[in-house]
Computed example of a mutant assay.
Amino acid sequence: MSSDTAIRVVIADDHELFRAGMRAMLAAETGIEVVGEAADGAGALAATVAARPDVLMLDVEMPGVPVLSTITRVLAESPGTRVIVVTMHRDRVLADHLHAAGASTCISKSATSAELIAAVRQAAPPSRAQGEIQRAPSKAVLSHREREVMRLIGDGLSNEAISRRLSISIGTVKRHNTHIYAKLGATSRTDAVRRAWTLGVFAGARP
């Protein structure tokens, strides 16, 4: 396969050693070319816009722009790029949110080199000539009120304090908590906060 038809890949991960290992592994493969790297979400977007790769390998937890926002912006700027999210977590709820945002697939960092290479080959479009693919905009993970409650949970407020802050009953706060946990796949307040940060729930203006 010539360089003109090789699968062009950008690697985005905040761990330099992981990027180096991924770069070496992919560079050794016939028909795959690494055309850019990044260490955070903003860098991933910039590298994708600059290189217009076939595949972006995107770490789920990097500094800066949340992963869902990164996926959305990447696909808006480079619709021909397929996004493979690389994660340490085997989490069905997180994977569902990532797929809804437009990720082609999710793969574990513990996957074998053969599995990672296979994911790149499977995600790459058959031809760059197939044109842009229209994607429906992804829905917010939480409702507006649930984001307000989640942000206050992140600030360490109790249910009683959230009730007073938002002028709602404690029972309503608890119902919001139940919905938030279900949507995030969380099992505790600490787990909900971690997942909310990963999915970008805390981005934007505070309540």
Rank of each mutant, 00 (worst) to 15 (best):
R164A: 13
G200C: 02
R151Y: 02
R145E: 06
R206Y: 14
T81F: 06
R194A: 13
A101F: 07
P207I: 05
S188W: 08
R52Y: 04
I180A: 01
A192Y: 08
R8F: 02
S169V: 05
I168M: 12
R23S: 13
V9L: 08
L68A: 05
G171W: 02
I153D: 04
D155H: 15
T5V: 09
Y181P: 03
K174A: 14
A100C: 04
R147P: 09
V201N: 02
S167T: 12
T30L: 11
A100K: 14
E16L: 13
A100Q: 01
A28I: 05
R73I: 09
S78D: 07
A140G: 00
A196I: 10
I84K: 12
P137M: 11
T198Q: 07
R195S: 00
A196R: 07
A24I: 04
T5C: 03
I133V: 15
F202H: 08
Q122G: 10
L26Y: 10
I180F: 08
S163D: 00
V83W: 01
A51T: 08
R73D: 15
M1E: 07
T178H: 13
V60D: 00
P66A: 11
T105C: 15
H179G: 11
R121T: 11
V85Y: 04
E148Y: 05
E33G: 02
R175E: 14
S188H: 11
V141C: 13
E16W: 04
I107L: 15
A124P: 01
G41Q: 01
M88A: 15
V201I: 15
G31Y: 02
F202V: 07
A27Q: 12
R8I: 02
S113R: 13
A119K: 10
G41C: 01
K174D: 08
D191V: 11
T105D: 12
A24V: 03
G102Q: 01
V55F: 14
T70A: 15
E29V: 04
E61W: 06
M22T: 14
S110N: 14
R151F: 02
L17A: 10
G131P: 07
R165I: 03
D13K: 06
S108F: 09
S2A: 10
R147F: 05
V141I: 11
I153T: 09
Q130H: 13
E146C: 12
A44R: 11
P66Q: 03
Q134G: 09
R135E: 02
T87E: 08
I170H: 05
A123Y: 03
A6L: 03
G36I: 01
T112F: 03
L75F: 09
T187A: 08
S158Y: 01
G36H: 07
L157W: 10
R195D: 02
Y181M: 15
V120M: 04
A47S: 15
A124Q: 01
A47G: 13
L199Y: 11
S78K: 11
A47N: 04
G171Y: 08
G171V: 12
A140Q: 15
G156D: 06
P125S: 15
E160H: 10
T72F: 08
T172Q: 14
S188M: 10
G131Y: 12
S110A: 14
E33T: 12
V85F: 00
